[in-house]
């Protein structure tokens, strides 16, 4: 890394984040469910880090643990170099926000749009008069493309895309520098997805926010992200620049994921070979020894069963956790 790059302050640093949930098994016994098992990455100001992986691999848990919606089992999260603890999290609530996956359950059905967007302003007392509150809310609504006349309506009167815009306006209300976007478009249909994603990009240009963009759609993630991290069973297996990852995937799991991306040209699609993984994802309660992916990996060796590979930099910040590739 050059000196110039070192001077840029990392916005969010995640080191060895672990999040285990106790699961009851039989009488009085609990075993840990390793939802996130030692995840480390960092995000620069104004950057988008995409986080992909299949359902249940711990993407959402990573996002929620960073925001302390769960108390992490181990590991640390730093914001602007400052360690975040349970006690000082309250002040960072203004800096870090979240956009939720389901636009239907993330808005309180008993509140008007004005109150939903105004709640962060109320909690942090960011206004001095009623008029100022209203002006701020109208400004936020304009920012996400809602009309002023929508302010007095209830969430159930809106479509999915509009609801997601309300959720984004709520996240932006405290003027955060970092937003966790937890599959913000997967509940929307494709034409609306494009609108919302473009809006995320515009907002980033205007406001300079950094995103942790969680999704399982590789095309969407590739479109919006600067860098992409791939997760499998609670661990990051590969992390690289978006284009680099797309053109030169190294981890066998990433290769398989990328081969499953549909291509809108039938000729190319026919020529392309799909790598189909064998077997199912192992239960996170009974993780395989060593590398978690070895049970489905065609390159797996003896060593994979004994040791767990660490993320190793293969140049240009392209890190891969695999012994064989």
């Amino acid at each position: 890394m050059s000196n110039e790059e070192k001077n840029v302050q990392k916005l969010v640093e995640v080191n060895g984040l672990k999040q285990y949930f106790p699961v009851k098994s039989g009488f009085g016994k609990t075993i840990p469910l390793k939802a996130v098992d030692g995840v480390s990455f960092d995000i620069m100001p104004g950057e988008t880090l995409g986080l992909v992986g299949e359902s249940g691999c711990g993407k959402t848990t990573v996002g929620r643990s960073i925001l302390r919606l769960y108390e992490p089992t181990a590991g640390e999260v730093r914001y602007n170099g400052e360690l975040i603890t349970k006690k000082n999290m309250a002040e960072y609530r203004k800096e870090m926000q979240m956009v939720f996956q389901d636009p239907y359950s993330s808005l309180n059905p008993r509140m008007t749009v004005e109150d939903i967007i105004g709640e962060p302003l109320d909690v942090h007392k960011l206004y001095t008069s009623k008029g100022e509150r209203r002006d701020k809310i109208l400004h936020l609504m304009e920012l996400v493309g809602l009309n002023a006349e929508h302010a007095t309506r209830y969430a159930h009167e809106f479509s999915g895309g509009q609801r997601q815009r309300i959720g984004i306006a709520r996240a932006l209300a405290v003027d955060p520098k970092f937003i966790v976007c937890d599959e913000p478009v997967s509940a929307l249909d494709v034409s609306i997805q494009a609108q919302v994603i473009n809006m995320f990009e515009e907002l980033q240009e205007k406001l300079g926010v950094a995103y942790l963009f969680i999704a399982h759609d590789l095309l969407v993630v590739h479109h919006i992200s600067n860098r992409i991290a791939v997760m499998y069973l609670g661990k990051i297996v590969e992390i690289a620049d978006a284009d680099e990852l797309n053109d030169n995937p190294m981890h066998p799991y990433t290769q398989s994921l990328l081969s499953a991306v549909p291509i809108p040209d039938p000729k190319i699609a026919k020529a392309k070979k799909r790598i189909v993984l064998e077997g199912d994802v192992p239960s996170p309660l009974k993780m395989p020894s060593g590398c978690a992916f070895r049970t489905r990996c065609k390159y797996a060796t003896e060593r994979c069963a004994q040791e767990c590979p660490n993320l190793v930099d293969r140049g240009n910040g392209h890190k891969v956790a695999c012994f064989n590739k």
Binding site: A90, R93, Q97, F100, S106, E119, P120, V123, R170
Partner: peptide, 22 residues
């Protein structure tokens, strides 16, 4: 368990406010 309660926690709302408003 609804996400709007999580959202209120993300915003920094105190438990009293969450019970009362949400």
């Amino acid at each position: 368990e609804n996400e709007y309660v999580l959202a209120a926690r993300t915003i920094g709302a105190k438990p009293g406010r969450i019970i009362r408003r949400h």
